[in-house]
Design a binder for these strands. Structure first.
Length: 561
RNA sequence: UGGGGUGUGGUGUAACUGGCAACACAGCAGAUUCUGGAUCUGUUAUUCAAGGUUCGAUUCCUUGCACCCCAACCA
């Protein structure tokens, strides 16, 4: 792992979860043990928001010498699939954590059932015959008490009988539910006799057809924690009001060990993107992006394809900390961590995205010379390579201006620049095509500057990249812009898609130096002066722009004259 | 409408449980540079509001205000 931007000997940033765990240990709770879990529902792919949760869940456990397990919260057979299970395990591992053998809430269905009977027997649960609408209406509202179900006083024997027959499959979906007998007057709506079981004649991705009775999240979650020996059950803020119910269930059960503690923290949100499963799915289903691994998406699969190093994502997550404040981090900060990492590790190559021809008029006809360039000036250990140089090169269209604006110090008539690692060249003229666009730039080179330095100490203000036209290889480069133009997609209208950037992807045909052909699938290169680019995992010669370099020039142009 | 949570520069996060409000990103200025990158130096800017307690309040008290979550047989 690379070094953290924080000074190495400063203690880890304060973090309220860490402090709560510390306090529990000081009290001797849980026998000093720390165990957490990462509990995704296998109904979609993991995204950057999950990455933070994973870092927190695994991170806290690791920090205290405890363990963290991956548990699938697969209590709803309608939406869950094995495909997602495999992808999630894979993503967790890619991020850099060892999920071990995954656990499944569905493996606890029998124990959950037994505990449900225990609750019935002790008078804390009952079978309700009413439909969802009626139950919802009886629940009351904010500031209005609920009214009790007419089935609430059903006796234990009848409840037990009905519940067993529910399990046996005697009833249709929705005919009965099992409810906790808590408090219909409670200020916290979660405690107004919540549903524990619903009947679903549905195939389960793991349990198969063994059950028609499925536990709800609230009934399954804390109990699963208890079964596994979880000590600290970390979840996101919206479950705050569920904590009372989490505790209620646990307090009414003969637990095998200590009662786990739920702690809520703020999830990660980023500007210019969305993480809701519904929106993500919509983008894909409507063909607005090319699939779950489209590099514009915040899914882990997409970020991986785009070339984001997992270690940089982890550093980012550690850096932003853990708190209870709802907030949205600027995507620029994440990108800073990505660049910071890649700058040290990505080999440099030259690729011209928008080529125009540069002709060196005093270069000997037909001559090729090999220029030696460092693979990474930030890491001399990365070695050197030879790049073929000739009298006809591709250079970036942006690197020439027929009428240079103030402060522009690349190529323009009469100016001299350095061709990276090669020679100084002086512009002597240019040709335009029929529409007045620059088609070809002419220059002369100074043979005394071979390697890129003038012997008499002459300086140039700019260095540009180049590719010999005779040796260039053709590559396709996908340039990505923000998927959403607004910081907070949907903030104005309530509909994120209203802020969709319709031009978030541009694919250009580019010219690259020969060494680019050797890029391994997934490898990230720095195309000099342009940014970082990841070789596609499947399509050779396709590169995805991971992130651009910072462009000072853009700021210069923005400044008032 | 009842309950719960949260408010610190432009953004995000800290401040040893009352003692000079700090760090990072972004911005600006300069140095340096064979990437207008990176690096280095400097710099602008912050405690939701109003009261109170106190020698002293981001921290404690009171009252407001703003935002988020909760009335799925989703998680």
């Amino acid at each position: 792992m690379s070094e953290h931007p924080r000074a190495p000997d400063t203690p880890p940033a304060a973090n309220f979860v860490r402090e709560l765990v510390l306090a529990d240990r000081a009290k001797g709770d849980f026998g000093g043990r720390v165990q957490t879990r990462f509990p995704p529902e296998p109904n979609g792919y993991l995204h950057i928001g999950h990455a933070k949760a994973i870092c927190v869940d695994f991170g806290i456990a690791e920090e205290f010498g405890g363990i963290c397990k991956l548990r699938f919260d697969d209590t709803n057979p309608e939406t869950e699939e094995t495909e997602y299970v495999d992808a999630i395990v894979d993503d967790v591992r890619w991020l850099g954590f060892e999920p071990g053998e995954p656990l499944y809430a569905s493996d606890y269905f029998e124990q959950l059932y037994q505990w449900a009977e225990h609750l019935i027997a002790t008078g804390f649960a009952y079978v309700d015959d009413q439909d969802a609408e009626t139950i919802s209406a009886q629940r009351g509202g904010y500031g209005r008490p609920g009214v009790e179900s007419p089935f609430r006083s059903r006796d234990v024997e009848e409840n037990l009988d009905l519940f067993r027959r529910m399990r046996a499959g005697e009833f249709a979906d929705g005919a009965h539910v099992l409810r906790a007998k808590a408090d219909m007057q409670h200020d916290n709506m979660q405690l107004r006799d919540p549903i524990m079981y619903r009947i679903r004649h549905e195939h389960h991705h793991r349990a198969g057809d063994a059950w028609v009775l499925y536990p709800t999240y609230d009934w399954a979650h804390g109990q699963s924690d208890a079964i596994e020996g979880v000590t600290h059950s970390l979840c996101s803020l919206e479950f705050d009001s569920h904590r009372a119910l989490y505790d209620w269930y646990l307090e009414h059960l003969p637990l095998p060990g200590d009662q786990p503690r739920q702690i809520e923290f703020a999830r990660l949100e980023l500007t210019h993107t969305v993480t809701s499963k519904r929106k993500l799915r919509e983008l894909i289903d409507d063909g607005l992006v090319d699939g779950w691994d489209d590099p514009r998406l915040p899914t882990l699969r997409a970020l991986r394809r785009r070339g984001y190093p997992p270690s940089a994502i982890r550093e980012f997550c550690e850096f932003i900390g853990v708190g209870k404040t709802n907030s949205r981090h600027q995507i620029e900060l994440l990108e800073w961590f990505i660049r910071n990492q890649l700058n040290r590790t990505a080999p440099r190559r030259m690729t011209v995205l928008h080529p125009i021809k540069l002709v060196i008029t005093n270069w000997p006809d037909g001559r090729t010379e090999m220029m030696t360039l460092q693979n990474n000036p930030e890491d001399p250990a990365d070695g050197i390579r030879d790049v073929p140089f000739t009298g006809e090169l591709w250079i970036e269209a942006d690197d020439f201006m027929a009428e240079p604006s103030p402060k522009y110090y690349r190529l323009s008539p009469g100016s001299e620049v350095r061709l990276r690692g090669a020679f100084f060249v002086k512009c002597t003229g240019f040709e335009t095509d029929g529409q007045g666009r620059v088609a070809e730039v002419h220059c002369t080179y100074d043979p005394e500057t071979r390697g890129g330095n003038s012997s008499e100490g002459r300086k140039v203000k700019a260095t540009i990249h180049w590719v010999s036209t005779a040796h260039a290889i053709d590559v396709r480069v996908a340039l990505y812009d923000r998927l959403f133009t607004a910081d907070v997609p949907g903030e104005r209208t309530g509909e994120p898609l209203d802020d969709l950037n319709r031009n978030s992807k541009t694919v250009v045909d580019a010219k690259a130096e020969p060494a680019v052909a050797a890029a391994a699938p997934g490898q990230v290169l720095q195309f000099e002066r342009l940014g970082y680019f990841a070789a596609d995992g499947a399509e050779r010669s396709l590169f995805h722009r991971t992130v651009g370099l910072k462009v000072e020039w853009a700021n210069i142009q923005k400044r008032p004259k």
